[in-house]
Amino acid sequence: MCNTPLHAFLAALPKAEHHMHLEGSLEPELLFELAAKNRITLPLSSDAAFASPASLRARYEAFQNLDDFLGYYYIGMSVLVDAADFEALAYAYFAKAASQGVRHAEVFFDPQAHTDRGVELATIVGSVRKAQDRAEADFGLSSELIMCLLRHLPLSSALETFKHANDAGYFKDGTLAAIGMDSSEKPFPPPLWKDLFAAAEGLGIRRTIHAGEEGPPLYVTQSLDVLHAQRIDHGVRALTEGDDALVARLVASKTLLTMCPISNVKLNCIPSIAAFPLRRLIETGVRFSINSDDPAYFGGYILENYCALQDVFDLSVREWETIAKGSIAGSWCSEERKAQLFLEIDDVVHAYVMENEEQ
């Protein structure tokens, strides 16, 4: 919880989330529950962190870097086996997000990590779709699903998975909103994926990519120039280490940066929340959103990220209004949905301002 008077306002503020890995919302308790259900043996013999949900959560507090985290992330994925598992995972996230004011979510999933274990793509997509429909009915939360491909696997695997999804009609019918790229960043520069992104662009499919988290600002430039990416996930180094020309380009193109402050600190990409380039983002006019990334592993969902920033930067109500509206503007939902969400933001801001003027 924030240590400022704005906590109630931040909790009520309608939010859009664009950078959240469904597999990264697998809480330790659900991980152990599904492991028992599916008779998955967790590696307790080699890692004492798997003794209990509590010890595993404690280990999550000590990630050294991205690859250290990914080791646990992929072990966690192994407990997801059948349709009920994926639906339970996704619905749990949507319920938590809705409780924190998320009104629209654009979430990632990693199909290759599951299909390589024998889980059918249709099982994953169909069960997440059910969770999306339930969340819209139960909470009024709209959502889009983004298929991320894994950078540490060969290009041929990414192309095969993309073709499978496209042949199934998932992009054409709107089941999948876009493709993305995640996993280990630094050893796998963006140009490696030129053929994949060219294929997606040729079919009119939206494209996003993790860049500028561990990799240099050059990775952001390459993502724009070589891959024609329409959105950059993370991009923190473009603001902390990049030159003014790159920042100006991001402003002019209205490219959305999906920023994850707590994640950046937990993975030692920045030393503290105070080092997050929030003021530069606001002052330069870069379009960005604040997101949770892998909240079960990093100890913070979207509201915790908002609060962490507020504790350090002490933003005004109007600044948060601008951030919230910028995130809606950069979303991939319909213009009608955006207009509805803008009005919801106006209502919350107006109510807060009127209440505080009367006091």
Score class of each variant (00 low, 15 high):
residue 319 E to N: 06
residue 318 R to Y: 07
residue 315 L to E: 03
residue 326 G to W: 01
residue 326 G to Q: 06
residue 312 V to I: 09
residue 300 G to P: 06
residue 316 S to G: 07
residue 325 K to I: 10
residue 324 A to T: 11
residue 322 T to H: 05
residue 298 F to S: 14
residue 323 I to D: 08
residue 314 D to G: 12
residue 327 S to E: 09
residue 317 V to K: 03
residue 330 G to M: 15
residue 317 V to F: 00
residue 318 R to M: 04
residue 305 N to V: 09
residue 301 Y to M: 11
residue 300 G to E: 11
residue 323 I to F: 13
residue 310 Q to I: 00
residue 316 S to Y: 02
residue 305 N to A: 08
residue 302 I to S: 13
residue 325 K to W: 14
residue 326 G to V: 09
residue 319 E to I: 04
residue 329 A to K: 11
residue 323 I to H: 07
residue 323 I to R: 07
residue 325 K to M: 11
residue 326 G to P: 04
residue 326 G to T: 06
residue 329 A to V: 06
residue 317 V to A: 03
residue 316 S to N: 03
residue 317 V to S: 05
residue 308 A to Q: 00
residue 308 A to T: 02
residue 322 T to L: 05
residue 311 D to S: 11
residue 322 T to E: 05
residue 312 V to Y: 02
residue 319 E to V: 03
residue 317 V to C: 03
residue 301 Y to N: 04
residue 326 G to Y: 10
residue 322 T to V: 12
residue 298 F to V: 15
residue 321 E to Q: 13
residue 320 W to M: 04
residue 322 T to R: 13
residue 298 F to M: 14
residue 330 G to R: 10
residue 307 C to N: 13
residue 313 F to Y: 10
residue 313 F to A: 08
residue 317 V to H: 05
residue 309 L to F: 01
residue 314 D to T: 07
residue 303 L to A: 12
residue 329 A to N: 12
residue 328 I to K: 10
residue 298 F to P: 12
residue 301 Y to R: 00
residue 324 A to V: 15
residue 318 R to A: 02
residue 331 S to P: 10
residue 325 K to E: 14
residue 300 G to N: 10
residue 304 E to W: 08
residue 321 E to K: 08
residue 313 F to C: 04
residue 309 L to E: 04
residue 302 I to A: 04
residue 317 V to Y: 01
residue 327 S to L: 07
residue 313 F to V: 13
residue 331 S to H: 06
residue 314 D to E: 12
residue 326 G to S: 09
residue 325 K to C: 13
residue 302 I to L: 13
residue 320 W to C: 00
residue 314 D to N: 14
residue 312 V to S: 01
residue 323 I to E: 05
residue 307 C to Q: 09
residue 322 T to S: 06
residue 330 G to H: 15
residue 323 I to Y: 14
residue 330 G to P: 15
residue 306 Y to C: 06
residue 301 Y to D: 03
residue 327 S to T: 07
residue 317 V to P: 05
residue 300 G to C: 12
residue 299 G to W: 10
residue 322 T to Y: 06
residue 326 G to N: 08
residue 332 W to F: 15
residue 329 A to M: 12
residue 307 C to T: 09
residue 315 L to C: 05
residue 316 S to K: 07
residue 305 N to S: 14
residue 332 W to S: 09
residue 299 G to L: 12
residue 325 K to H: 07
residue 316 S to H: 03
residue 314 D to P: 00
residue 318 R to W: 05
residue 321 E to L: 06
residue 312 V to N: 05
residue 314 D to S: 14
residue 324 A to R: 15
residue 306 Y to T: 00
residue 310 Q to R: 00
residue 330 G to I: 14
residue 304 E to R: 08
residue 299 G to C: 09
residue 320 W to V: 00
residue 332 W to A: 10
residue 305 N to T: 11
residue 306 Y to W: 11
